[in-house]
């Protein structure tokens, strides 16, 4: 039982807690990475809760902060085109593989584009995944133009009438404007073949408040439509994703929980919020 649940147990049926209890609750909220602003909001709300179902009431308050946008992954008739973006080391390539595997298991045909032409061996990494899962990976030269690889992939997906086309991209820090411009170019070029229906930003669950800044700037350049919250199997709770939902209205769509292709599932609000409070 987490500190928070203990706290809830303690306050059940009473409205008389000491400042030490509040400090404990603040600590717990902050440690989930929701950030000081949301933590304060929740704390203030918690102070008003007096009933026996304090936990439910708090879960509801937190749920209200979720984005109003749909948390369902987007699918369209014809080829659904998905671009996966994020800062370095969040697990983009792994997420691409997991997405591919998910759709494949659901009977869809999938084509991948190895758009990370920058990091050493990233293309090989995706190809290895492609072989494991049994999907086609379109790749170009290492250090080649990622937009051209993505373009080739899009054409291939169109020609083969694939259900899903997923573009992996190189990790980039959001404060590098040249790299963000490159990403916008990849999107522009692909959209000459077919519109990109979903742009997924991969956020590492261990990320702190910087995640907000990542989401904000990636959205400015490529209009992020959803979050993949990766590495939620660790001790990190991924609270910054809730801050992103509350602040920017970008919905979490997928949750990554391990290194195997099956460790991946569509977002479930209830279990996510409960996880924050665990």
């Amino acid at each position: 039982m987490g500190l928070f649940s203990k706290f809830i147990a303690k306050i059940k049926g009473t409205n008389d807690f000491s400042p030490a209890d509040w400090a404990e609750l603040e600590q717990e909220l902050l440690s989930s990475d929701v950030g000081p602003k949301l933590a304060k909001e929740f704390l203030d709300a918690a102070k008003k809760v007096k009933s026996d179902n304090a936990e439910e009431a708090l879960i509801e308050i937190m749920t209200q902060n979720l984005s109003k946008s749909s948390h369902e992954p987007i699918t369209v008739n014809g080829t659904t085109t998905i671009m996966v973006v994020g800062v370095n080391g969040t697990g983009k390539t792994t997420s691409v593989a997991k997405l591919a595997s998910y759709y494949k298991r659901n009977g869809k045909s999938v084509v991948l584009a190895a758009g990370d032409t920058f990091r050493a061996a990233a293309v090989d990494q995706l190809k290895t995944w492609g072989e494991r899962i049994g999907v086609l990976v379109i790749s170009g030269k290492e250090n080649g133009d990622p937009a051209s690889v993505a373009f080739d992939g899009a054409q291939n997906a169109q020609k083969s009438q694939s259900d899903v086309f997923i573009i992996d991209t190189a990790g980039r820090l959001h404060n590098k404007s040249d790299l963000m411009a490159e990403l916008a170019k990849v999107k522009r070029v692909v959209e000459k073949v077919s519109p990109i229906n979903e742009v997924l930003l991969v956020i590492d669950a261990t990320t702190g408040q910087n995640g907000l800044q990542q989401a904000k700037i990636f959205t400015e350049s490529v209009e992020v439509t959803g979050i993949v919250l990766s590495k939620l199997d660790g001790s990190a709770k991924g609270g910054v994703a809730l801050a992103i939902e509350a602040e920017l209205g970008i919905p979490i769509k997928w949750i990554g929980t391990g290194e195997s292709e099956g460790d991946f599932a569509p977002f479930d609000a209830q279990s996510y919020i409960k996880g924050l409070l665990a």
């Binding site: 902050l30 440690s31 989930s32 990475d33 800062v87 080391g89 590492d204 669950a205 261990t206 990320t207 702190g208 408040q209 910087n210 995640g211 990542q214 660790g234 001790s235 990190a236 709770k237 609270g239 910054v240």
Partner: peptide, 14 residues
């Protein structure tokens, strides 16, 4: 990673 959040404490301790 310099971007790590509150989990830095738990993870570094682990």
């Amino acid at each position: 990673d310099a971007m790590i959040g509150q989990d830095a404490v738990r993870t570094s301790q682990a």
